[in-house]
Nucleic acid binder design. Structure first.
Lengths: 230, 230
DNA sequence: ATGCAGAATACTGTATGCAATCATCATTCG
DNA sequence: CGAATGATGATTGCATACAGTATTCTGCAT
């Protein structure tokens, strides 16, 4: 994909994409897909050369990666890919549950018919991915759906905070996406219905249960795995 | 104060503080105390000169300031001090309520006697500031108390997220700190009691009411002011 | 063999310079 | 007289160079 100016879907004019942004996206991708493993020392000069840019945009991207929780930045030592603990994953999921529950309520209050139609489209995408058994596509569709619900909540603060939590959850979520899949997408359907009817309380409660189910499922899976090698 | 390595109170060895950190703190201070007003264009070269450093640390600090919500960073145009809308303040307060409620529950479950004693100390500091009528000190003590509760929740994710929300709330909160004061600190006392007894449910509920009261109070005040000049 | 001291190396932190981009203002044409 | 257009100055984005610090390796004494 060339870095020439492009036009977004909304007809917005595109400012030339800063390199630091491209670097940020490239690095998150490398971390998510496992090319850069947790704990690995990220040397600025290496990254700069392999991505074909200077150290400056690398440094700026690393700053953002730190606040997003992808890397740990230790003074005069450099950047290290963040190593998640199972404890942290559980905390991340529980915080996500809080925030998304709140956003479901907001979505139910603000969504238009058009918005809801879009949610059903995303739901279809997810079901297709589930049928195809593509874990990566499932996780992506899941993130897209949840992200759109957040958008519909019309809450700028949530919209800023949730991605920070959610993208990381997405990372940890990958291994359990398939087994959890069927139930999760049934729950999605009922949440969308509630949003479509503007039933704020019901949407909130359904989302609360949905995220709690996901959290529980995750913890069980982890416990099962931990039991094997402890 | 020289920047030679010193030893902190916890016996930790202090890595030399990067300039970007100092710049970050200096700029937040300037924004909070009003020297840099919302909407103002922050020119890198100006800041660099006035702080006596080069543009590089300034740029890195601006990156962090953006993710923390203090400034808006528009590509190839530079940084602008974020202009909060009343709507955004309300959203910020409601999200803070969610997160702090959750952290109060965690604190009640994990706090030791020593931790609780520390909370009472902070409470005393707050009462003293209240008696002195020093709005700035009140806000600071309030932030310190809430921050310590978050710490006690032993939840790394909350500990990372709440400051992002809380520091901004602190900013908006300044004007209403005094009138809200008395009630707020009474509520604090009961929350601390609940934490001391390890009563998670009660601590959670008290915190929920406390943050809701604060939110309501803020909205009323804003409405009153808006009524005047609309 | 083991622990320690010191030098060498590698990396980060900071400063500076140059090119690309944007906003502003004067100018010209309808 | 107003609007479109081109030139100019200011500012950001990126690259490179240098200084300070941490880590590692080697050699030596115990």
């Amino acid at each position: 994909m060339p870095d020439t100016p492009t036009v977004t879907a909304h007809g917005q004019i595109s400012r030339p994409t800063p390199l630091r942004q491209a670097v940020y996206e490239a690095l998150t991708e490398l971390i998510i897909n496992g090319s850069l493993k947790p704990g690995r020392h990220l040397v600025e000069a290496e990254l700069a050369e392999s991505l074909g840019v200077s150290r400056q945009p690398i440094r700026e991207a690393l700053q953002r990666l730190q606040t997003a929780g992808w890397v740990d930045l230790r003074p005069s030592q450099g950047a290290f890919v963040h190593s998640p603990t199972t404890q942290e994953c559980a905390q991340l999921l529980s915080v996500r549950a809080l925030l998304e529950t709140h956003s479901a309520r907001g979505a139910a209050r603000h969504a238009t018919a058009r918005d809801v139609a879009r949610l059903w489209e995303l739901q279809q995408t997810g079901l297709a991915a589930l049928a195809a058994g593509d874990a990566r596509a499932i996780v992506e569709a899941n993130a897209a759906l949840h992200g759109h619900i957040t958008l519909l909540s019309r809450n700028a603060v949530l919209d800023e905070l949730i991605p920070q939590v959610d993208r990381r959850v997405r990372w940890y979520y990958m291994p359990i996406a398939k087994p959890r899949g069927k139930d999760a997408w049934n729950e999605h359907a009922r949440i969308i219905e509630a949003i479509g009817e503007g039933a704020a309380d019901r949407a909130e409660e359904l989302m609360r249960r949905h995220t709690r189910n996901t959290t529980d499922f995750y913890c069980e899976q982890i416990a099962a795995v931990a039991g094997r090698d402890d």
